[in-house]
């Protein structure tokens, strides 16, 4: 039976088991590889996507739980004003090293700024502590979130 999802504003239809996590649907069925596999148990945040604007870990999220909901991935987040602002801040401050975790970092940061336009350090800690960066870009992640927050809404 076909599953239907709205991803980055587009309708997608595919066959997948109900319990299949969204992460693997995105990556292995739809070929949207920007969302990353890191741990498989929601400990690292590399797989973060937005469901109805909220940051969620897609590695444990059964695809059947998100039908009818609006899903945004790293491939689409740049079309939202806040996502574009975060991406620009990431480049302005040259946050990224290997970049593997950064899809998840950017998705978490964009969700934070959408709900809390001017986050303080504790807001950033709370929103970003679920995203591991092995390259250790945390100093710049924090600065970039503040930088993005200080940019005028476009």
């Amino acid at each position: 039976m076909a599953t239907n999802l709205t991803i980055n504003g587009e309708q997608k239809s595919f066959d997948a088991p109900d319990d299949m996590p969204l992460l693997w649907v995105l990556r292995d069925i739809l070929g949207m590889t920007g969302t990353k596999f890191g741990c498989g148990v929601a400990l690292c945040g590399a797989c973060t996507v937005h469901v109805d604007g909220k940051a969620v870990r897609s590695c444990l999220l059964p695809v059947s739980a998100v039908s009818g909901r609006a899903i945004t991935t790293i491939e689409g987040v740049g079309t939202t004003p806040v996502g574009a602002k975060v991406q620009k801040a990431w480049l302005d401050l040259e946050v990224i090293q290997c970049g593997y975790c950064q899809s998840g970092q950017i998705m978490s940061a964009a969700a934070l700024l959408a709900s809390t336009p001017t986050p303080d350090d504790s807001d950033i800690d709370a929103a970003m502590a679920g995203n591991i960066c092995r390259c250790g870009t945390y100093v710049r992640v924090r600065e970039a979130i503040k930088h993005a927050a200080s940019e005028r809404q476009t």
Binding site: M32, T33, K36, I74, V77, G78, W90, G99
Partner: peptide, 17 residues
């Protein structure tokens, strides 16, 4: 500015995985 980072903010970079 680095060459590799623009494609790393939008999921375009292709890693081995």
């Amino acid at each position: 500015k680095r060459f590799d980072t623009p494609d790393k903010v939008n999921g375009k970079t292709i890693y081995g995985i």
